[in-house]
Simulated assay, not measured.
Amino acid sequence: MKGPILTATDIRVSFRKENQRRLFGRERQQVLRGISLALEEGECLGIIGESGSGKSTLGRVLCGLLKPEAGTVRINGLDIYGRHNHRENAQLHHSLSVVFQDYTSSANPRFRVRHIIGESLRVLERIVGSKLDRERRTAEVLEQVGLPSSFAARYPHELSGGQLQRVCIARALAIRPRIILLDEAISSLDASTQVQIMDLLLELRRSLGLSYLFITHDLTSITYLCDRVAFMNNGEIVERVDDIRHIAEIRHPYARLLLESVMGIGVEYGSGDNAQAQWAAAAAC
């Protein structure tokens, strides 16, 4: 590891409570309660929690879509919500891409694949300040995600769910990011396709030197893909595992409950290559 590529410090977010009788009611619900974390260069950090735990809100903060009420998010030392010159802005926009859960809504059904990927290429052109060979770059990223260049002419409805999510990953790769935030990026896929996409993500991480923030509610995918994991509950990180091989040693009651719901009480679960073999075997059943 070369040191943190992304850090979040004391992140706090609250929203005005719904169903308040007064139009300008001031009562607020705390959604994130002082979250701090660091993503090391070249690693995959898993963030796991149930619906309502705050993990997706944290994801929005980390990728620049939601400014926190307090705290800082830094990529390569730059505060992503600070004021920057053109070069620094370009560096930030070049650093992180996002792949969302709902690949059907994140890909315009009226666009061919070349235009879906072209959305990112237009961003990259603004960053580098020059025109790109879009056809060549599109073919490159399609090849990286295991799709032939001929898919550039297809529409989303002509693709399977797994193929369309590969296109969304290709779009994320197009700007040559250093970090990809994956927000429930495999949860809408069937089990066998999930394994294929996770294997793709592992290979891309190795070949391109990527770092991942992997947000999910699924502990089995965490053990397959991640080096470390943070458990979130009620807007807080309640437990951290800094070596996924020690996942069975967690102690917080909420984290234990998640673990036991997957493993069964008292059952040891593998990690690394062993965990991947177990996961693939389960998916084939």
Results as ranks from 00 to 15, higher is better:
T9V: 12
L6A: 05
P177K: 04
G3Q: 08
V31K: 02
D273G: 05
R22T: 11
G71V: 02
D133G: 06
I265F: 13
Y81E: 08
C44H: 04
G71K: 00
A152E: 01
R87H: 10
L62D: 00
R176M: 05
V98P: 05
T57F: 00
L65D: 08
V99W: 00
E69G: 10
V167E: 01
D133N: 13
R178T: 13
A172H: 08
R26P: 04
L257Y: 11
G118A: 02
R21H: 12
D227F: 06
V238Q: 09
E236Q: 14
L62P: 07
Q30T: 13
I244Q: 00
E268K: 13
A284E: 11
M1S: 15
L23E: 12
V238P: 10
E50V: 05
E268I: 09
P253F: 01
Q165A: 03
V113R: 00
R12N: 15
R134K: 15
R87N: 09
S14N: 12
R205C: 06
I237N: 02
D10P: 01
L225C: 08
I180D: 05
Q30M: 13
I48F: 06
D102V: 04
V238L: 08
Q194K: 08
L210R: 03
D273E: 15
T7R: 12
I11T: 02
D102C: 06
L225P: 05
G162K: 03
G272Q: 07
Q30G: 09
R126T: 13
L132I: 11
T104F: 11
H252F: 06
A70M: 11
S120D: 04
S160A: 07
D218C: 01
L62V: 02
R251N: 12
I179H: 03
E268G: 12
L204Q: 06
S36H: 06
L124A: 09
